[in-house]
């Protein structure tokens, strides 16, 4: 993740959000999502406030809406699940467009979709405005245990190695006429997984030795002074503050 390695999720912009220290952004996302999740059942207006708040963050971070929408495809599994709910839930039935649906199921599906989607968009905004290396630094400053930071550092470093080797082996398989069609082909794929592991380990070993010989001690070097000021924390706190105030108001007016 040294200079020149740009992650495909990261949008290289110069914005207010990009400049915020990573630890402030991580804390803001976690608090925001927590506030969203604790929104009481039965009030719908808070979700509009959350959407507006995230929209403001996206605008400030210059993350375009099409990018966010495209990346929301990750939530497909639980959208499918939410679609099943109105049909499968017990309780009183209502008629919607000629279909007999469970009223509680419909409500649950709506809440699940709203809360889940807001969580997904918050993560998308974090990833689009923070480099993986800064994310690691942020987690390190938030006192995530050193061993976890170290494993995560190596993981980010090796993902490229694993994906590169994986691609090379796929090209090799396909150029020999392999085409995974039925379950019997699982064996070939799994054997490739074993070979992949050994090849990656041997390359990874060389990477690690190269790092050690350049003075790696297990901690990430901090190049720029990325300590966070009170002003930056105050700005990052805006999003969770809005969300917490909304949740509290929703509970109060219930």
């Amino acid at each position: 993740m040294s200079a020149g390695h740009h992650h495909h999720l990261y949008l290289d912009r110069a914005s207010l959000i990009h400049r915020l220290p990573p630890q402030c952004k991580i804390a803001a996302v976690v608090l925001f999502v927590t506030a969203v999740v604790t929104t009481p059942r039965g009030s719908w207006w808070p979700y509009a406030v959350y959407v507006l708040a995230l929209g403001a963050v996206a605008a400030a971070g210059r993350v375009p809406a099409p990018t966010i929408l495209r990346r929301m495809i990750i939530e497909t599994p639980f959208v499918l699940f939410a679609v099943i709910l109105p049909f499968a839930s017990p309780g009183p039935k209502t008629d919607v467009l000629g279909l007999t649906l469970s009223a509680t199921g419909l409500e649950s599906a709506g809440i699940l979709l709203a809360k889940g989607t807001l969580g997904v968009v918050a993560s998308i905004l974090l990833a689009a405005t923070t480099q993986p290396r800064d994310l690691l630094l942020g987690l390190q400053r938030l006192h995530m245990p050193q061993l976890l930071v170290q494993i995560m550092t190596f993981m980010f470093r090796y993902i490229e190695v694993v994906l590169g080797e994986m691609n090379r082996m796929r090209v090799a398989r396909e150029s020999r006429g392999f085409d995974a069609r039925h379950v019997g082909h699982l064996k070939v794929v799994a054997q490739s997984a074993g070979a992949l592991f050994i090849r990656c380990y041997e390359r990874g070993e060389r990477v690690h030795l190269a790092m050690l010989s350049r003075g790696y001690t297990g901690r990430l070097p901090v190049f720029a002074d990325a300590r966070s000021s009170t002003g930056q924390w105050a700005m990052a706190a805006l999003l969770p503050l809005v969300a917490v105030a909304t949740t509290v108001a929703a509970w109060a007016t219930l």
Binding site: Q150, R157, Y158, V162, C200
Partner: peptide, 11 residues
Amino acid sequence: TAPLAGLVAAF
């Protein structure tokens, strides 16, 4: 083995 753990995570 620390890098091995990172590799297993990546894997």
